[in-house]
Simulated assay, not measured.
Amino acid sequence: MQIALVGIGKIAVDQHVPSIAASPDWELAATVSRHGTVEGVAAYTQLSEMLDAHPEIRVVSLCVPPVPRFALAAEAIRAGRHVMLEKPPGATLSECHTLEALARQHRVTLYASWHSREAAMVPAAKAWLADKKLTRFTVTWKEDVRRWHPGQAWIWQPGGLGVFDPGINALSIVTEILPDPIHLTAATLEVPENCQAPIGAQLAFAHPTAQVDMVFDWRQTGDQTWEIEAETTQGTLKLLDGGARLQIDGSEQGEDADALKGEYPRLYANLARLVARGEIDMDLAPMRHVADAFTLGHRSLTEPFHE
């Protein structure tokens, strides 16, 4: 199937373009971007121009920042195209619900993709936890914003999410592997004096049997930390390297894998199945927790951020 990629920035170049190129399901047939292009692929600066020029391209993958994404997604859906949304699927929950209703009205596929759920050991972690009684659950998600988001000023503006841009990756895994639902009870958001979005967050959640705490931080230097630990009455599980590695009671499960390898190829395989079946996947559970943090969180000003 032919697909168009909208927004040729770092994540598109690093993940989407190579994943599409390696896929047996997809052919990158057009791009839409104000600045970026892909060699040998038809390039446009406006989505409307691409839609008019290529009625044969039935699928659009959106890699633009969250705030402008709604208008582009709605335009593509109204043109009868299937749409894949980078995470988070939008700037607000309400606009995501609107997009889903619009997709159902126009009978097209809409896919809210969560790439961290596709990490190698997430399914195994979910299976192991399914019949366990949880007593304590901790998430430590610390990385270097300068390394992963160089020059991306939009992440510090309203709708950019700040540290919840990576933090929502952790939440996407948590909401996939936990058999019982959780909800936020308290949060502290550390906001740089010159920014609108947090650079750090400490979160506490209610759970039927366990204490659940999470720490997100965008100031980590050196080794990056993407860890989830679940203590149960039958042992302890650790998901390491963003879900690429799994330990049960200290014993490594499966083979070591690159933390990012395979996630985006699996997203595009999921998209192909959804389009073939005419289905919609708009799970917004990770985004609900982020919205709750912004609603309930205590804001604490911290030193200005300068790249």
Rank of each mutant, 00 (worst) to 15 (best):
T98E: 15
K142Q: 11
K132M: 10
Y111N: 05
M121V: 07
C96Q: 12
P123D: 03
W114G: 01
T109R: 08
P88M: 09
R104F: 06
T135L: 14
L110F: 00
T135K: 14
E95R: 09
H149R: 12
S116M: 12
V145W: 12
Y111A: 04
H149M: 12
L110Q: 03
P150E: 04
L102N: 10
S113K: 00
G90T: 09
W156M: 12
T138S: 13
W154E: 15
L134P: 00
L93H: 07
A120Q: 14
P89T: 05
T109V: 02
C96P: 09
G90S: 09
Q105P: 01
L99P: 00
G151E: 08
T98K: 14
A130M: 07
K133R: 15
W114Y: 13
R104C: 11
S116A: 13
A120V: 11
M121K: 11
T109F: 00
A101N: 14
E86K: 03
E118P: 00
G90Q: 06
T140W: 01
L134D: 03
W114T: 01
A153L: 13
V108W: 10
R146G: 13
E86W: 01
T98D: 15
G90F: 04
K87L: 01
G151Q: 06
W154V: 10
A125D: 03
W128H: 02
F137R: 02
T138H: 10
H149D: 02
D144A: 08
A153W: 00
E95Y: 08
M121N: 07
W154K: 06
A101T: 13
E143F: 05
H97A: 14
R136L: 04
K142R: 14
A119L: 10
E100Y: 01
A127D: 11
S116K: 10
C96G: 14
R146K: 13
E86F: 01
K142T: 02
A101D: 14
W156L: 12
G151H: 02
Q105E: 15
A130R: 11
R136Y: 03
T98V: 12
A130D: 12
A91F: 03
P88D: 06
A119F: 10
R136A: 14
K132T: 08
